[in-house]
Design a protein around this nucleic acid. Structure first.
Lengths: 360, 360
DNA sequence: CTGAAAGCGCTTACAG
DNA sequence: CTGAAAGCGCTTACAG
């Protein structure tokens, strides 16, 4: 009968014990059992041992619901993410995901407070993070865009035993509970594969960075590394050019820079490892160069426009809403229910084309 | 001060009321408040109205934790999915996802019981489902592979007010709480786009169905419809051929059938809308026709082998583990926490290539 | 070192 | 129609 459960294909466990049961079996009071469960001092070695034995034997686990109620605690989660610059800004997606999750968990006495910063300004990041640190929170969900600035401040959280999770941007070698986001390198490799399919031969390509994106997170660089790695692995003889666009709103200036790159070259495909791909799409439209292949990242109104008219061939989407939604819920479950998630959740790469962009 | 919360960018709500508070304000006992909250009879219209007013005014919401504890209920979830035929079978992934979620929620007095059936045998499905119906469950997670057989039995669940959710296979017009899985049609469209990139021109293609897959779920047909729709929309002049493979383990017979299709044709690409793509990969290998392009579905050991050696060009993955994992957790949250999910969660299409299959 | 009791916010008989 | 009390399984002072 030992294996009857598995034979029946069930995980039912009808013998859930309570601390009262354990206390009775050990001939002690529930207070003493509680002390053992939480490793609190003031229990003789003998009783501690006997209680620990019973706990193991009966596979006793604390009833979290009762615990939560008894503690009667409110949980405050802090969220530190870039502010949205417009209604179609990428950062609306994670924020909306967080808000959705936040609505769902609000009833569990959990509140979410937002701290926003300008994603291009390390000082703004510092300021927002410092403001966050002034208050006390039970957990922090953040996008660690600026490397050193983040690391310095994470130490404060660790000193206070405040768990934190990353969304969208990874920061290796941290004690984060969770990273949820894209595998940037892989997305670049896929972009390269698609690009070489589009070009059909060993045509040259141009990687276009935007300076604004330059001084922060490593995702952009990882995407580029992934992109280039594909051609290296294929022992391709084609050339991959690089260019960085300045921080300007002057589309003419941008057009000229790209134009100069293309002239006298065999470049047939353009890869923009960020949502700023629309800048390049605008150029292609003006210059009537839409036959050149263009792959970029992220959904926003402009990008949607350009993928519909096929100026952009592929957009790689980051599931940003889901990052925010799932990140928040996972952190909540960690906090309230002691549910320890996998450290890295790499969301699948969502490929958008003219054909499927409508449905989103 | 009315908008101070939103100005501060916070959703903190420090004035959480309890039924005790409401009772005091209404000058009644908590029992009466409870009656109003749950629309139970035995309250005068006058007191009911005044309590309802107070509940609205103070935005009172029941403390779920306390409710769960007071009800002290165990939740039993039934899972009805195809059995795995081998260690590398597709159905291991959803099952493992369900098991993972099940481990996480077990502590919340929730048990999961599995009912398996042979995915090609409607009678086995009926038998497993009927067995499930003999016991009582609080919710059911199932893969509704056989249309009529499912619908008939769902009525029983509805009559008993048992919520149910679908994973992997959709069944429109049902009162399911949730469907989580792929958008089959879209995945077919993407496959077609990739195929036409691979072929570079208006070459002909062959869609290969396996008879075994034929008599059940609509996913396969939706994938094919999506695939064909792409070429129709493009006003392509190429021909799409169809062939159905019989239920045989005789690879030679299969090879001959495919071979006959290819001979005297301009077919350059093969689309297999199921995990059985390995059957076709084996043929291409034997016939030394690996230059033909091949797109299929799902991860298993054989498919991984053939994508690594580039016999298969693209595999479309269904995030099957995640379907099981998220499906179970969502159903749990619906059950325990009254969290109503979006009805249809379409997971992003995960594109596997030689380059990224390693990481999975 | 240990136990008895109150309390967390609900639900559920039971009494009136 | 309404209220008082016990109980769900924990935690937390407090008493000894």
């Amino acid at each position: 009968m030992l294996f009857s459960n598995s034979v029946l294909g069930t995980s039912k466990n009808y013998s859930l014990k309570t601390i009262k049961d354990i206390a009775a079996l050990a001939n002690v009071s529930i207070g003493t059992v509680d002390r053992v469960i939480h490793n609190r001092p003031g229990v003789s070695e003998k009783t501690r041992a006997s209680i620990e034995k019973l706990i193991k034997e009966h596979n006793f686990q604390v009833n979290k619901t009762a615990r939560t109620l008894a503690l009667n605690k409110k949980y405050d989660i802090a969220v530190l993410i870039p502010e949205s610059e417009s209604d179609s800004d990428f950062w609306n997606f994670p924020r909306k995901g967080i808000e959705k999750a936040s609505e769902e968990i609000e009833i569990h006495r959990t509140s979410v407070r937002y701290f926003y910063f300008n994603q291009f300004d390390p000082n703004a990041f510092n300021k927002a993070f410092d403001e966050l640190l002034e208050d006390s929170f039970d957990a922090v969900l953040l996008t660690p865009i600026f490397l050193e600035e983040t690391q310095e401040r994470l130490k404060h959280l660790e000193r206070r035993n405040i768990p934190y999770a990353f969304i969208n941007v990874e920061l290796p070698n941290s004690n984060n509970v969770l990273y949820i986001g894209q595998h940037s390198y892989d997305s670049g490799t896929l972009a390269a594969k698609l690009m070489s399919l589009l070009l059909g031969s060993d045509a040259d390509t141009l990687v276009i960075k935007v300076r604004k994106d330059n001084n922060h997170h490593s995702s952009i660089d990882n995407r580029i590394s992934g992109f280039k790695s594909y051609f290296t692995a294929k022992k391709s003889t084609s050339t991959i050019y690089d260019v960085v666009l300045p921080n300007t709103k002057d589309q003419n200036a941008i057009n000229e820079i790209i134009s100069n790159q293309l002239v006298n070259s065999e470049i047939k495909g353009l890869f923009v490892p960020s949502s700023k791909v629309s800048l390049v799409a605008r150029f292609l439209e003006t210059a009537k160069l839409q036959h050149l292949k263009l792959i970029g990242y992220d959904l926003n109104d402009e990008n949607i426009h350009y993928i519909k008219n096929e100026t952009i061939d592929f957009l790689i989407d980051q599931n940003a809403f889901f990052q925010g939604y799932e990140g928040t819920k996972t952190l909540f479950n960690y906090l309230i229910n002691d549910i320890i998630p996998e450290k890295n959740i790499y969301l699948p790469i969502k490929l958008l084309t003219k054909e499927n962009v409508e449905y989103l």
